[in-house]
Design a protein around this nucleic acid. Structure first.
Length: 263
DNA sequence: AACCGAATCAACCGCGTCTAT
DNA sequence: TATAGACGCGGTTGATTCGGT
């Protein structure tokens, strides 16, 4: 699909929109490998891509970047998203900093398709105090229980160990986040009783590339729910659909019961 | 097998902020 | 200091896939 731009200057150059082709991806990957990223508009021109700089940036950050992590959102990640969203709201890029390999777009999509959907099913406004309390006092503790239960059986993909906290990140001090060297079976998020307090431990924002990047996207682009494509040796593969899916009937009934009887 | 609504997610858009001149 | 262009974020859209009938 090719459209002209409204901008007179850009009308001279046709601008491609819509899905990226393999050739375009390779062009972008090769160009960035040689010249680095940034200056997206000039990068798009220099690389010979008939795309806007914005489009190139988005494609790189959300899909082509070697450290981008694909596949199901794990229970730990779900918990982290709920926790961070309760603090910061729709600050997707900020939240994404604490989920290595996940993009703001992916987290935003997760929130809209899963969390908002279930808020709707529970007949709650996602921004209502009722729903926020439900998340904080019911959803998140329940998630922690499930994480604890499954961590005693399985080895989930781990978020990076925390050795220090970047002092340059103002949010750390403002929320009293403490450093931890423990693995993240449960430690990134405090106990239920702490969920309202300031003593929550968060993993580092991922300003450094993932040391164990997933396979290149060309060999790893199954639909996220298609478990048959996942390599059992791939550390990023979900353990199982059942474990990964917190939003099952049992939990929905549990939440609905508490919403209708206790709130 | 075919249809259709729901769910998912890649990509686009608008706008505010940042940066260079 | 003013201005233009670049950048990045959050919201939205639309194509594709999934799942139920």
């Amino acid at each position: 699909m090719i459209e002209g731009s409204s901008n007179q200057k850009e009308e001279d150059v046709e601008v491609r929109r819509g899905p990226w082709t393999v050739d375009e991806d390779l062009t972008l990957i090769n160009y960035i490998a040689t010249h680095g990223e940034g200056r997206w508009n000039s990068l798009a021109r220099s690389a010979g891509l008939k795309r806007t700089g914005k489009s190139c940036r988005l494609r790189w950050l959300n899909y082509l970047r070697p450290d981008v992590r694909r596949g199901n959102i794990t229970l730990q990640e779900q918990l982290l998203i709920l926790d961070l969203h309760s603090r910061w709201g729709n600050r997707w890029s900020k939240i994404a900093q604490y989920l290595p390999g996940r993009t703001d777009n992916e987290i935003k999509n997760y929130w809209r398709t899963r969390v908002q959907k279930h808020a709707k099913q529970l007949k709650c406004d996602v921004n209502s105090k009722q729903f926020k309390d439900t998340m904080r006092y019911l959803w998140m503790p329940r998630l922690r229980e499930r994480i604890q239960a499954s961590s005693s059986i399985n080895h989930f993909p781990q978020t990076p160990e925390i050795h220090n906290i970047n002092p340059a990140t103002p949010s750390h001090s403002s929320f009293g986040i403490i450093a931890s060297t423990s693995h993240s079976h449960l430690s990134p998020i405090s106990n239920f009783s702490d969920s309202c307090s300031a003593h929550t431990t968060l993993p580092l924002p991922h300003n450094n590339p993932n040391p164990n990047p997933p396979h290149h996207y060309y060999s790893q682009t199954p639909h996220v729910d298609d478990q048959s494509h996942w390599d059992p040796n791939n550390p990023y593969s979900p353990q199982s659909a059942a474990e990964d899916n917190f939003w099952n009937l049992e939990n929905m009934l549990f939440l609905h019961h508490h919403l209708t009887h206790n709130m």
